[in-house]
Design a protein around this nucleic acid. Structure first.
Lengths: 196, 196
DNA sequence: TTAAAAACATACTATTTAGTATGTTATCAT
DNA sequence: ATGATAACATACTAAATAGTATGTTTTTAA
């Protein structure tokens, strides 16, 4: 990797961390250049504005993570019920990238930026749709294999499940403890089992 | 009501609206005094700091709304399954206080303030617990009446349901349309029916 | 090796921000 | 009616903010 590309990447990575912790609006460019040890000139050489950097974070940091941690695990498993449950368990309990006290990065971004920044809205919508589309496909495959009841509506289930995930992350943030994750996961499991 | 109290209340109400729409951090005191037609002197006579006003909004605006729109409907109904479903339907579809494009005010506050402002965290936790406690009690009553299966865990179900609500509000915000609410509500209904 | 362009560095600016200092006016008990 | 205090009004300040102007240094292609 070229040095300039490396600079750009460290800006994105460190900025993401700060934003994940403090929020987008309250993370200043000065904060970012202080923690990255990159000067303002370098920052504005790589990004025209703060918002351009924000969009780049979503596209270049969040999207790859989404693919690795949210999508691939769904595609690896045979049974959609196990796939979804194991995914959630992994995201909530094991994943070290996501911290209970700071919630879900995509959800945070959506909450903060979506009503007022069309660009953010678009790219976050893409992000979410990638995830939901794969989950829908997973459930449909399960139906064909006879692992899921015929009358189950995959899109409906996906909306319900993804909502639950976003909500429980908010819950965790509020209680600042993974404790809330356990009743959620238990109930998710019994819910998913009703789809058999 | 005394005139001074009226001033305080309009500040809280208008500030709430702005914050609901734009977020807490990006709503400035100047924004608030501009839309309320109240001067800075008056504002700081009523509130020592912006955060004091923020807490007051949660206690004096959000809490009463919670009681009226989130708690009483649960207590009025006999069957917890109907109670929860009708509540959600009402909150998502009929309620005019809550707007799809701006999400859930309590959830927005949690997302934005909770990791860094202990005072906000405390009061938001109270708010949420009031709601969940009533929902738990509703389900327990339903169990005693034989309307809910014996092996259902009320706290687990409540965590699951409330998470779903918060999540679907985030979803609505993202898609900026009530359309997503319908698959959610349908699946919520079939889920709730499995608790019988 | 060298010239041009890419990559970075420093010092600055205009605006916005929460909050304050210091007033003036309205209200109310006596 | 009057004095005290509650309620508001105006003008200011210091800090923070996104972004710019104008450099210097490093890479790279010839």
């Amino acid at each position: 990797m070229k040095k300039a590309e490396a600079t750009r990447l460290t800006i994105l990575q460190k900025a993401f961390e700060l934003i994940y912790i403090k929020g987008y609006q309250t993370t200043s460019i000065d904060d970012i250049i202080a923690t990255t040890q990159v000067t303002k000139g370098a920052f504005y050489y790589h990004f025209k504005t703060k918002d351009e950097m924000g969009i780049a974070i979503i596209n270049e940091i969040l999207k790859p993570t989404l693919t690795n941690s949210f999508i691939e695990p769904l595609q690896r498993e045979e049974n959609p019920i196990d796939a979804i449950y194991n995914l959630m368990h992994h995201l909530l309990i094991e994943n070290e990238f996501l911290k209970v006290e700071y919630g879900c990065p995509a959800s945070n971004f959506t909450q903060e930026m979506t009503p007022w920044h069309a660009d953010f809205n678009n790219v976050l919508n893409e992000l979410t749709q990638q995830w939901t589309n794969v989950m829908i496909a997973t459930i449909e495959k399960g139906k064909k294999k006879g692992l899921i009841r015929e009358d189950v509506n995959p899109k409906q289930v996906t909306t319900f499940v993804v909502s639950g995930y976003w909500g429980i992350r908010n819950f965790g943030k509020l209680e600042n403890s993974k404790k809330v994750y356990f009743p959620y996961l238990k109930e998710l499991k019994s819910y998913l089992n009703t789809l058999k």
